[in-house]
């Protein structure tokens, strides 16, 4: 079996815009899932609402496409009722951190055995480009027409502070590393959170000086800085360049977890 065997071929091509990073994250996730050697009938994908949350519809396992922000609460019910199922969640920055913020921190606190992949495009893609809790200060969106002024969430710090067992961030450029991180997350008992920075050329890139799809992916390539390097710079008293995307595994620990199959 290869990861393409997990695709729901009769629904492709998907609805994503040309160059949307979400499709890449689906590839990486399915690759990691495929490496786990899981059976399809034991695997369930869950999501909320948003472009990112459409992903489970393109995967041929059982899948639950729920309401905006609530994927983790639904997934908690599935996993607690049947710990034998492998439950993987796709979510977006708005879905996870705005309307679903409370469920997010509580799922981390419970450290329930789920793997969450957040496609963070720093925007509300599906509804046409409104600001989200991760829209950078100064960035343009339809609801921040003069540049966003709100401080943002660091989703990985949030997950770490709230108690997740595994926390990692990569981008849609770092496909191999991202796949490895998701694979690690799938293996670790407890809550695994993987943030994937993705391009939304239609509703973020276009308004924020990324003319071509490739421009934003090139930006990920050039502005990503490994966590270890960022730490080293700080230790040396140097500053991490502004606008860096710190990537790497941030947390890997063994807090007591819920919903782990015994």
């Amino acid at each position: 079996m290869t990861y393409t065997d997990w695709l729901r071929e009769d629904r492709l091509p998907h609805i994503y815009c040309a160059g949307c990073g979400n499709g890449t994250i689906i590839n990486c996730t399915l690759n990691a899932v495929d490496h786990m050697g899981w059976k399809k009938e034991d695997t369930v994908f869950v999501s909320g609402i948003g472009c990112s949350s459409r992903a489970p519809g393109y995967i041929s396992t059982d899948s639950l496409h729920t309401t905006h922000g609530r994927a983790l609460a639904f997934a908690t019910g599935i996993k607690m009722a049947n710990p034998g199922l492998h439950v993987v969640i796709f979510t977006g920055d708005g879905d996870l951190a705005a309307i679903g913020g409370n469920h997010f921190i509580h799922a981390c606190r419970r450290n329930i055995d789920l793997t969450v992949i957040c496609m963070n495009n720093q925007i509300y893609g599906m509804t046409g480009g409104q600001g989200s809790p991760t829209t950078p200060v100064g960035a343009l969106s339809t609801t921040t027409p003069y540049g966003s002024r709100e401080p943002t969430f660091d989703l990985c710090q949030l997950a770490s502070a709230a108690g997740a067992n595994f926390v990692s961030r990569w981008t849609s450029y770092h496909v191999k590393e991202l796949t490895r991180a998701i694979h690690t997350g799938l293996q670790i008992p407890g809550f695994s959170f993987i943030e994937a920075a993705v391009q939304c050329p239609t509703n973020y890139g276009r308004r924020n000086k990324f003319r071509q799809v490739m421009d934003q992916v090139e930006y990920f390539k050039t502005h990503a800085i490994l966590q270890q390097k960022a730490e080293r710079l700080k230790a040396e008293g140097k500053s991490v360049p502004e606008n860096s995307i710190v990537i790497g595994d941030f947390i890997r620990r063994d807090r007591p977890a819920m919903g782990v199959k015994r």
Partner: peptide
């Protein structure tokens, strides 16, 4: 069986619906 106190009622009914899909009465 499983009892879980969720973070709010939105999550409560969500968990019930999720559990129901695994075939359990919830």
């Amino acid at each position: 069986g499983v009892f879980i106190q969720m973070e709010d009622e939105i999550a409560g009914i969500a968990a019930v619906i999720g559990a129901s899909w695994t075939g359990v009465r919830a």
